[in-house]
Amino acid sequence: MKAIPVEAGLILAGVLFMLGLISVLIRRNIIFMLISVEIMLNAAGLAFIVAGARWGQPDGQVMFIFILTMAAAEVSVGLALILQLYHQLQTLDGDAANKMKG
């Protein structure tokens, strides 16, 4: 099996991360922002997998399991918050929740 070059994997991870970041920045809908954060998390997980494969170490995959677990927890908390937000403000617009400005 021909190994995928490590640069390609890292570039894919970087592109995914940037896509997620940009969509967090430009999206107004808070659910989409949450999904974008998930994309960024997966991009980071991908970078770990690629790096683990490059050095033939299991650590990358261990880290991915951690990230996966953390992402699950994050989504559950995030969705709960979104529910509350929607309940309070009757909207999913993230900018509407700017009450805490200085």
Partner: peptide, 15 residues
């Protein structure tokens, strides 16, 4: 100056 950055818009924080 710092109080102005505290504008409650999340994308600014992320930025």
């Amino acid at each position: 100056a710092f109080a102005r950055t505290q504008n409650g818009v999340m994308r600014w924080y992320i930025m």
